[in-house]
């Protein structure tokens, strides 16, 4: 297992290398001045330019520049945003948790709803629960996420007024950022109206989470169903049935464990879609996350910010994928002993 972990991590190194090389090359590919793309500082004086050129090794060859780029990445010096004048790293540190929070809750909802729904549909294959849930998932699968968001806003915010339309928390509350995960921050702060603030934050979370969870929930439902049906056809299920086990035992003891293994992999693969959808959701709900910031940066041609956001989001997706992969290998006895990692 340690061997496997080591090989898997060495593969990760290659992926990170490719990612950083691409991000680095963006400096050259973006229009505009190279020095500005690197540093994010415009209209520099001569002496400042001299200093920056030295810092970014502009006069040296590309490899040295790349080396300096990577070492700066590790030091946390990700450049300065053109539009705000603050460092990109501080933006990412502030905004990425908001996106992660949203994605995490959406994924939790997707797992809690999608997997049981998938199990139910497979257990009642070709009966009415299967038909109802399958139709609903097809519907949820094909609804464009922005349209669903607008629809929910129209009904629940403007119509009933149950949920707020935008933001993470009401203006009444001032939550100092510690971890930048808002629910965690409220809990850590422990001020007298914490309970109400918590409820308010949950209210703000509800609609974006529902919108974002729609796609992964339906995908997981369908995937779990297919996987379960596939497993229920296998010989070992027939053996278990011939052994005299009842339906519940067969599904819980044998079918589920085998069927959920490919689902774990699928959850890892859903992360990239989830982040993309999160960007759309963030824009619609004015959620202060990294996705909205990235889209704004693209509009404003804020090149250092685009680089930084891209790097952060991609890195997160890669790590999430690897985590899912490791979980899968840890739980699957067949692939546990394989010594070679796969990308």
């Amino acid at each position: 297992m340690l061997d496997y972990l080591f090989r898997r991590l060495s593969l990760l190194l290659f992926m990170l290398f490719a990612l950083t090389a691409f991000t680095f090359s963006l400096n050259y590919l973006f229009p505009g001045d190279l020095l500005t793309n690197f540093s994010g500082q415009v209209n520099t004086s001569f002496s400042q330019s001299q200093m920056l050129e030295e810092k970014y090794h502009i006069d040296d060859n590309v490899l040295v520049q790349y080396g300096a780029f990577v070492s700066r990445l590790f030091q946390g010096d990700w450049g300065v945003s053109l539009s705000s004048g603050q460092t990109v790293a501080s933006h990412v540190a502030l905004l990425l948790p908001a996106t992660l929070e949203l994605c995490f809750y959406a994924l939790v909802v997707a797992i809690l709803l999608g997997i049981p729904a998938g199990i139910i549909t497979s257990a009642y294959h070709k009966k009415w629960p299967d038909k109802v849930i399958s139709t609903l998932t097809l519907l949820g699968f094909s609804i464009p996420v922005f349209w669903l968001a607008l629809l929910l806003i129209m009904v629940f915010c403007l119509g009933f007024g149950w949920f707020p339309m935008s933001g993470r928390i009401g203006l009444l509350y001032e939550i100092p950022a510690v971890t930048n995960f808002i629910l965690l921050d409220i809990w850590l702060l422990g001020f007298p109206y914490g309970g109400q603030a918590f409820l308010d934050a949950l209210h703000h979370l509800a609609l974006p989470t529902v919108v974002l969870a729609m796609y992964p929930t339906t995908v997981l439902t369908r995937f779990t169903r297919d996987s379960m049906l596939n497993v229920l056809e296998q010989n070992y299920i027939k053996t278990a049935r011939a052994k005299g086990l009842n339906r519940r035992q067969i599904i819980l003891d044998h079918a589920l464990r085998n069927a959920l293994l490919p689902v774990i992999k699928q959850i890892g693969l859903q992360f990239s879609t989830l982040i993309t959808l999160a960007m759309v959701t963030e824009v619609i709900f004015s959620w202060p996350g990294v996705g909205r910031w990235l889209i704004d940066s693209i509009y404003q041609r804020d090149y250092p910010a685009i680089q930084g956001g891209l790097l952060a989001v991609s890195m997160f997706v890669i790590f999430a994928n690897m985590l899912a992969d490791l979980t899968h290998s840890l739980l699957d006895p067949v692939s546990r002993n394989q010594s070679h990692g796969k990308v």
Partner: peptide, 26 residues
């Protein structure tokens, strides 16, 4: 359900492909 009980109690079957008839994760 009754049939499964009777069969499970009185009969047993050995299948052709033994490895595929065993649960790979148990």
């Amino acid at each position: 359900e009754k049939r499964r009980k009777v069969v499970g109690r009185d009969m047993a079957m050995i299948y052709q492909e033994p490895r595929r008839s065993l649960d790979p994760t148990a």
